[in-house]
Write a protein that binds this DNA or RNA. Structure first.
Length: 893
RNA sequence: GGGCGCGUAGCUCAGCGGUAGAGCACUGUCUUGACAUGGCAGGGGUCACAGGUUCAAUCCCUGUCGCGCCCA
């Protein structure tokens, strides 16, 4: 006998290891079954599960479990990402606590950093940290129920994937698609590395606009006024730009200004970049520290003078007194000195966008350095074509437009990072800085020997690759590439990639680039994008806001199935954010309990499935009906999952299990199950068992734990093995006659209940049901379902009658009027009011339909079946209205 | 500034040409042998606003106003 309530904790802890050790998640590349593959978006190896993971992985697991039951050979490829910058940051922070720093160039020992680690020492610490915390997130994914093939787990820095990274780098370099270039990059002065455009987030900052006067050469009293948000960069100015048509300044074009504080002679040039309406109309040009200025400088051949070091402190290209100053200290000093010189015209408050590094959290500095780049424009061509011709599709479709917008305007991808944790770039430099890119130092040496004609010392490039470089290879590197493995042959292209909108560009786009360059096809057929989980107010969850909900706490409290069901219901929103509230998880937990108790009911009533039971042989109407409802739910769930409308699958399951099975089928079957033994009882027990068996199958992808448990408790495990490996049900036929009959029954019972409640008939009072004007069909139905009606509507005795007695509730269903004599129990005036209300409602409906049917255009232009439907509805409403009027008259008689 | 999305019941959201829905919250009532993590019944909505297309618009189109996201 099942316990009274469902206890997820104990069951989940037991079921997962059972599946895993039985090999239920294992892919079988050698099998002939069709492949179905999803690669997991690899979480950071040292991270822990957050709500985004819970959503993303629930959706993937649903698809995986569904396809597994459908008979596919599924592979859910798991693994973790080394997450270069993020992991390095965490370890650095941990070391700082111990007073340990990194021996990077320019680092000094201080009280806080008594010890400085070499690169090798630091990497050893990171691997140590990985060993310590690396199992956390995979353990948490298991708690969620994720049925990944853990025997194939990979890590972006394991041996095989590192080999793939090297090969990709070397091949792309050979093809000219990876190259070194000296151009402006986004420099993070805190992390001390270059970052890509995507890692920069612009934040709105309330700052100032400073107006500086630059003296004109040879004209001591004349000035040109420039407006800037970054006074400190003036030390690197090499020009001033004005618009060619600007009446205020155009007479100065071709002349020179003398840069204050520095004394440099800088040209005044005409450039479209200057907007006469903005600021003063004249712009100072600092080509080495601003992306726009860099372009202007290039157009006018202005020198680019880099004035910062990597910490964003002023370097020796500026007058001595400023050297070593931090950029923000320099700003204050420069503004003060300009004011002293009388060259500060004014200061205006100004709100503008400032680029921040998404990891370091400080403003990034456009910085002129040599970095490695991938030719993203070239690599984007094949992915764009694939998205255009439908080899890859997006759900929802507008993801495709976003994809195009990004891919068609893509800039070179800066792939080198000045970090220690990551894939070190396979490039070696000779004494003359000649670069040798090779798979190994030996090969590089061989190349060098060929080039120089003698052995020379080579020095390896110290930089590592952008984390997203290795994750871009994920769909094929995890399957064994560059080796031609059976798994690679079978599972590539993968079927669907499930991820959030936020990494469409970071990851999805780059997987497309690499996948299409190194493999013959797209990495995945479908990109399924979902929104971001936020708190109830729609705010992003963050530690600093203190609004983070921990999925593990929810699993502890409500169970993994409840969390999964909630996530599935949430997954519909076409909007970018999914507001999460714990109340919904509670509701999902209640849903689990409901199913648990329905099963408990079945158990208590001897529901059992005979070995050779054929549901098509069912004779009782109520059984035929529920089997039809089951088929309907089955169809709806399949359709929803096929269309990636997972929330609709959740809704269909909820409505079927709660609304159909629990609310009606269980109640309607009680008279039979609790009545005398015989074929009807046997059939109902069998159908109950059958429906529950199929239900746990249909629910399994969404709520795997409780369904596996119930499958076992229902006794199917002994004969068929675990639920996870069962074949997915195929929907049977529905029965229109049974639908109509149970529809009538449900309406009759509901109407009686409503009338009783509205008239405050005591819940315990049992009334007689008198049927007036019922036809043969109704008589037969009343006979069939009499027991159920008596039970559910609290009736005692059903009889035909010529007329209704005066003191009675009256309702109309179909052609018959039903009277429930109440004697003096109720106030007949109230009943009169109730009837009048009903009549008015129907009369309004009739009037509405009449207006439609009276419209000649409607009758002639609307489809025939729509018109017919309206006529039928009018007739029904009018008939019921007339009968209720009769009932009302009788009441007053 | 450009692009996209969203404004539906008190709250969170489904629905997206032909009878306005769910969960939670709320009201009344019931411990009837599955379940009070529950049953039964009920209240609550000019589907943001203004035009247009259509026999018919919450749904399609245009504009306005709010909110959010992405890219400059």
């Amino acid at each position: 006998m099942l316990d009274k309530t469902y206890d997820p904790k104990e069951i989940e802890a037991r079921r997962y290891p059972e599946w895993e050790s039985a090999g239920a998640f294992t892919a079988h590349p050698e099998s002939t079954r069709p492949p179905y593959c999803i690669v997991i978006p690899p979480p950071n190896v040292t991270g822990s599960l957050h709500m985004g993971h819970a959503l993303d992985n629930t959706l993937q697991d649903i698809l995986i479990r569904w396809r597994r039951m459908k008979g596919d050979d599924v592979l859910w490829q798991p693994g973790t990402d080394h997450a270069g910058i993020a992991t390095q940051m965490v370890v650095v922070r941990n070391l700082e606590q111990e007073g340990i720093g990194l021996a990077v160039e320019g680092a000094v020992k201080t009280d806080a950093n008594k010890k400085l680690l070499s690169r090798e020492e630091f990497l050893a610490k990171v691997w140590e940290w990985k060993a310590y915390s690396g199992g956390t997130i995979t353990g948490q994914l298991r708690r969620l129920g994720a049925s990944c093939d853990w025997s194939r787990e990979r890590f972006t820095m394991d041996e095989g994937l590192s080999k793939a990274v090297l090969k990709v780098f070397v091949d792309l370099h050979k093809a000219g698609l990876i190259y070194k270039d000296n151009r402006l990059v986004n420099w993070d002065p805190k992390m001390l590395t270059a970052i890509s455009d995507l890692e920069v987030e612009s934040r709105e900052v309330r700052g100032s606009l400073w107006y500086f006067k630059y003296p004109i050469e040879g004209s001591p009293d004349e000035f040109i006024t420039v407006a800037t948000t970054r006074p400190e960069t003036m030390l690197g100015d090499t020009g001033v730009a004005v618009h060619a048509d600007d009446p205020k300044w155009k007479h100065l074009i071709g002349k020179h200004a003398i840069l204050p504080l520095v004394g440099r002679r800088i040209p005044i040039v005409a450039d479209e970049y200057s907007d006469p309406e903005k600021g003063s109309g004249a712009v100072k040009i600092t080509p080495a520290h601003d992306f726009n200025d860099f372009e202007v400088g290039r157009r006018h051949k202005l020198e680019a003078i880099s004035i910062f070091d990597k910490f964003a402190r002023l370097n020796d290209k500026v007058p001595e007194k400023y050297r070593g100053l931090d950029r923000f200290d320099a700003r204050k000093k420069i503004v003060a000195e300009m004011e002293e010189l009388g060259l500060l015209d004014k200061i205006e408050p100004h709100t503008h966008q400032v680029p921040y590094g998404d990891r370091g959290g400080v403003p990034v500095e456009p910085f002129l350095t040599e970095q490695w780049y991938a030719d993203a424009k070239k690599l984007a061509e094949a992915p764009i074509a694939a998205a255009r011709d439908g080899r890859v599709t997006f759900v929802p479709e507008r993801g495709r437009d976003d994809f195009f917008r990004w891919m068609e305007n893509i800039e070179p991808w800066c792939i080198s990072r000045q970090l220690w944790w990551g894939h070190q770039i396979p490039a070696w430099y000779g004494p003359d800085k000649k670069v040798f890119v090779a798979l190994s130092e030996e090969e590089a040496k061989a190349d060098a020997l060929k080039h120089y004609g003698k052995d020379v010392a080579l020095e390896r490039d110290p930089d590592v690759l952008d984390t997203w470089f290795s994750s871009a290879l994920w769909p094929f590197s995890t399957l064994g590439w560059p080796d031609q493995t059976a798994a690679l042959a079978k599972y590539y292209p993968t079927n669907v990639l499930v991820t959030g909108w936020d990494i469409l560009f970071f990851w999805v786009a780059r997987m497309m680039m690499m996948g299409m360059h190194f493999m013959p096809d797209v990495p995945f057929r479908t990109v399924y994008l979902h929104g971001l989980v936020t708190d109830e107010k729609g705010q992003k969850m963050s530690k600093s806001k203190g609004n983070v909900v921990d999925p593990l706490e929810l699993i502890d409290k409500y169970g993994a199935d409840a969390l999964r069901f909630t996530m599935t219901s949430l997954a519909a929103s076409t909007a970018g954010r999914l507001r999460f509230s714990s109340a919904r998880v509670e509701g999902s937990r209640n849903f689990a309990t409901k199913l648990w108790n329905a099963t408990r009911f079945a158990e208590m009533n001897g529901a059992a499935l005979p070995k050779d039971f054929d549901p098509a042989s069912a004779k009782l109407i109520v059984n035929k009906w529920v089997l039809g409802e089951l088929a309907r739910a089955n169809t709806a769930i399949d359709k929803a999952l096929t269309d990636f409308r997972l929330n609709e699958a959740a809704t269909a399951l909820y409505e079927f299990i709660w609304g159909i099975v629990c609310d009606w089928y269980v109640e309607l079957s009680k008279p039979v199950l609790q009545g005398t033994d015989g074929p009807d009882k046997d059939e109902t027990r069998a159908v109950t068992a059958f429906v529950l068996r199929e239900t746990v199958k249909l629910l399994h992808p969404v709520m795997p734990f409780i369904t596996e448990e119930l499958w076992d408790k229902l006794g199917h495990r002994a004969d068929h093995g675990a639920l996870i490996g069962q074949p997915w049900p195929a929907p049977a036929a529905t029965d229109a006659a049974a639908d109509a009959e149970i529809g009538w029954l449900v309406k009759l019972i509901s109407d009686i209940r409503s009338a009783r409640a509205e008239l405050n008939v005591p819940a315990g009072a049992k009334l007689k049901l008198l049927v007036v004007g019922g036809n043969d069909v109704t008589a037969k139905r009343l006979d069939t379902h009499g027991a159920a009606i008596e039970r559910l509507a609290r009736i005692e005795g059903i009889e035909a009658a010529a007329t209704a007695p005066k003191a009675a509730l009256q309702i109309v269903v179909g052609e018959a009027t039903y009277a429930l004599p109440v004697g003096e129990v109720i106030d007949l005036k109230t009943e009169g009011v109730r009837l009048q209300k009903e009549i008015k409602k129907l009369a309004d409906e009739v009037a509405k339909i009449d207006a439609k049917l009276g419209n000649a255009a409607f009758v002639s232009r609307a489809p025939e079946e729509v018109v017919e439907e309206q006529r039928e509805r009018r007739q029904q409403a009018e008939q019921t209205r007339a009968r209720l009027s009769t009932a009302l008259e009788r009441l007053g008689a």
